[in-house]
């Protein structure tokens, strides 16, 4: 089993990061979307924080599935089902005490599930443009892995700025979506860097 203290710290850190960055995510979304991403994520993760005692005491796979379900029910928009699918799929194949290989395999399956849910792929200015490079870095393994994944996620979110949106509300803007960071890419990067900080630090 994953240490319950670590699991609690992890869930709390991710939730607090998303809540703290609600304003930033909302302003990114106001530029190219409908401006509700920050508020929606905040609502979802406030639900997660309210449930933290129960979430911290469950096995890691059960906790991931429960957080996914919370996000599906509370976040709304397209982000609710997308993040919900990510976490629910991550929990589906995860052993209670995963090795690094297990995490890589389950994260890969979760990224594929997000592609299917959003009928999207890499290069379309979405959260996948952060999730996929973070997964690729994780799959490499090796030294200093947490910091390398963090950097990859951070840079990948920045790299969505020059992209033209091909999926979601931002795609209605066409060329005008160029020059803005994708809000979903940024929320994914925040989530990944927080996980890396807690587990790798």
């Amino acid at each position: 089993m994953m240490d319950q203290v670590v699991q609690r710290k992890l869930i709390q850190a991710v939730a607090e990061t998303m809540i703290a960055h609600a304003g930033e995510l909302t302003s990114l979304d106001q530029a190219i979307g409908d401006g509700d991403h920050g508020l929606n994520m905040k609502r979802g993760f406030e639900g997660v924080l309210a449930d933290i005692d129960s979430l911290a005491s469950q096995s890691l796979p059960d906790a991931l599935k429960a957080i996914g379900t919370q996000l599906v029910m509370k976040v709304g928009g397209a982000s609710g089902p997308l993040y919900g699918t990510l976490l629910m799929t991550l929990g589906k194949g995860m052993p209670a005490d995963p090795t690094l290989d297990d995490i890589g395999r389950c994260f890969g399956a979760a990224v594929d599930a997000v592609k299917a849910r959003g009928k999207s792929d890499i290069g379309q200015k979405t959260m996948l443009d952060v999730l996929a490079p973070a997964h690729a870095e994780l799959a490499k393994g090796g030294a200093n892995l947490a910091a390398r994944i963090s950097t990859a996620a951070f840079c990948a979110a920045e790299a969505t700025k020059p992209m033209k949106a091909l999926r979601g509300r931002a795609s209605f803007l066409g060329e005008r979506s160029i020059g803005h960071m994708d809000p979903g890419a940024q929320s994914s990067a925040l989530m990944i860097t927080t996980v890396c900080r807690v587990l790798g630090g």
Partner: peptide, 12 residues
């Protein structure tokens, strides 16, 4: 609509 009364859709 979303739970806050704005535009949106929700699974529940």
């Amino acid at each position: 609509g979303n739970p806050d009364g704005g535009l949106g859709t929700a699974v529940d």
